[in-house]
């Protein structure tokens, strides 16, 4: 199982004032707030942690079918190495591993539930546009991005005739499509 989330840093700077009073305490645990305030790049740290929470939420949402807005319930720990970060998100005792990519334009996080990992994951980055499904399918002839019976995204690989879980995230200028190519995640 996987989830992903991208934050366009330019758009976030314009639209999301995380320095607003009480904003961070509503969404981040005290430990996470400390990470932000002790960071050399507090803006980046906010959106890194936020994307981890969102990416993990997408797995929980998919597994349970429940929609909710409880960012503070997702507890993040993270280690940053240059422009990459690895972390863990705990939601009510359930743990998700995360891998994030950071640059001046965006923060992108992939989250995984036990059993699948980054080595089984393909990520495609595209320009964000309303017709992304069409443009993805035109560009990637061997693949088809579609929705399964529950309305969730999946990738159909023509060569193997197999269907694979996918996660789509878009924000501002960026669109990321991530999917697993392991057989255990093939949707029958």
């Amino acid at each position: 199982m996987l989830g992903n989330d991208v934050v366009d840093l330019k758009l976030a700077r314009r639209r999301n004032n995380w320095r607003r009073a009480n904003y961070l305490s509503k969404i981040f645990t005290p430990d996470e707030q400390r990470l932000v305030y002790h960071s050399d790049c507090p803006d980046l740290m906010v959106w890194l942690i936020w994307s981890m929470k969102e990416a993990a939420y997408k797995i929980v949402n998919r597994n349970t079918g429940l929609r909710f807005f409880d960012p503070k319930g997702f507890h993040c720990t993270v280690q940053i190495h240059d422009l990459k970060a690895t972390g863990c998100v705990d939601y009510r005792g359930e743990q998700f591993m995360t891998h994030s990519e950071i640059n001046e334009h965006y923060v992108h996080t992939l989250s995984f539930k036990t059993g699948s990992g980054i080595e089984q994951c393909h990520v495609v980055q595209r320009r964000n546009a309303d017709d992304y499904v069409l443009s993805f399918n035109l560009k990637h002839k061997g693949l088809m991005l579609q929705k399964n019976n529950s309305g969730l995204p999946e990738i159909f690989i023509r060569k193997t005739q197999s269907r694979h879980l996918a996660s789509v995230s878009h924000h501002g200028r960026f669109l990321f499509i991530a999917y697993l190519h392991t057989t255990e995640e093939v949707v029958s």
Binding site: R15, N17, R20, F69, D70, G73
Partner: peptide
């Protein structure tokens, strides 16, 4: 989704209430 927090904070101010998690 990052603006949902703003909506919650705005509601707290406008209606003078506290919204728990």
């Amino acid at each position: 989704s990052a603006n949902l927090v703003d909506i919650v904070l705005d509601i707290e101010e406008k209606f003078n209430i506290n919204i728990d998690n």
